[in-house]
Computed example of a mutant assay.
Amino acid sequence: MRQRILFLLSVAIISASCKKEASGQTVAVVNGEEITAAELNDALSKNAPQGANTKEARAAVLQQLVDRKLLVQQAKKDGLDKSPEFINQQRRGTEDLLINMLVSRKVNTTDVPTPAQINAFEASHPGMFGRRESWTLSQIVYPLPVSADVSAKLKAAQTLDQVADALTGAKVQFQRSTRQIDTAVLPPPIYTQLSNLKPNEAFIVPGPDKAVASVITERQPNPLTPDQTRQVAIAAMKREQVGTFLQDRVKGLKTGAKIEYQPGFEPPKK
């Protein structure tokens, strides 16, 4: 009897210690799952509108977290966390998070560029800085592929009307459209090539299933203030540094990695 009493007492103690309560750093418990103050503060910093009453905002965001927990629990009851779709997306999300953390570590440890480096970067990107413009493009969008004869006529076309005539003669349907483009998004070689086109000279950009023929019909200056210029330059330089870092890191990792492909899935030979 004494052993039975001790056993029941130990079970009661364990059960009591496992019971989660809304106290201390736990702001709520939803069917046994905790919502911590850290979770609430993180959600509050991301979701609460500026100028909102702190107490009211905290209560509203906490209710959102409670609702979220309930929906997640229901999804698990339905077995969605065991589905192939969930597992694949979870793996992808974890990989994206790790890559982002790797990039963030690189960005946070990168030295701020010097004024001389910033000036050199600005000079090498005129479409982003000194000669930044907004272009209006008249465009013709047509499907690919087209015959070799039509491709030759399109390549020889100098104006958008000549592009239209070539497509019409080949009975290829196309659509006309207009779009705005900021030259800041163009890589320097592309900006140089396009900015030197003659008035009304067409250029064609092919894609996987369609091509776009365009002509620049209007150019408007779109300058930055000195402060904006420096901020944009530093951000762009960091993006380039990250891109170079990732390319070099992947190249180095592939050198020492063992990668096997199922027949038919190998990367194309150069």
Rank of each mutant, 00 (worst) to 15 (best):
A57F: 06
N88I: 10
T54C: 02
T54H: 10
Q64E: 08
R92F: 05
V72Y: 14
R91D: 06
T36M: 00
K82P: 08
T54G: 09
K55D: 05
L98A: 13
Q74M: 11
Q89R: 02
E85N: 04
N47I: 15
K82V: 12
A48S: 04
Q64W: 03
T94D: 07
L40N: 07
G79P: 01
T94A: 07
A60N: 07
A59W: 11
S83N: 00
N41M: 10
N41G: 03
P84N: 00
A52G: 02
Q89C: 00
L44R: 03
N47G: 06
N53E: 02
K82N: 11
E85M: 12
V66R: 02
L70G: 07
L98T: 11
A57Q: 08
P49F: 00
P49A: 01
R91F: 12
K69A: 08
L98N: 07
L65H: 10
I87M: 07
K46G: 07
E39P: 01
T54I: 10
D78Q: 05
L44C: 02
R92V: 03
L97N: 10
D78N: 05
K46Q: 15
Q50I: 08
D67I: 06
D81S: 08
K55S: 09
N88A: 11
Q50F: 10
V61I: 15
G79Y: 05
K69W: 04
A38P: 03
A59V: 14
A59F: 15
I87V: 08
E39Y: 08
F86Q: 01
T94H: 06
D67T: 06
I87Q: 10
Q90N: 07
Q63H: 11
K77V: 15
A59H: 13
G93V: 09
E85G: 09
N53H: 00
A60T: 11
R91H: 11
E39K: 04
N88W: 06
K76F: 04
L65W: 11
K55C: 01
G51H: 03
D42L: 12
R68L: 12
Q73E: 14
D96M: 12
N47R: 14
D78W: 06
L71G: 12
D81A: 09
A38Q: 14
A60S: 07
Q64R: 15
E39Q: 12
K46M: 13
K55I: 13
F86A: 02
P49E: 01
Q50M: 07
L70R: 12
K55T: 11
N41T: 10
K77C: 09
Q89T: 02
L40R: 06
Q90M: 09
R58M: 07
E95V: 13
A48K: 00
N47L: 15
N41F: 09
T36A: 00
A38E: 15
A43T: 09
T36W: 02
Q50V: 11
L44E: 00
L65V: 14
A57G: 10
Q64P: 01
L44G: 00
V66F: 01
Q50Y: 07
D67E: 05
A60R: 10
D78T: 02
F86K: 01
L98C: 05
V61S: 04
S83G: 01
K55W: 04
L40Q: 06
L44T: 00
L71F: 14
Q90Y: 13
K82E: 12
A38R: 12
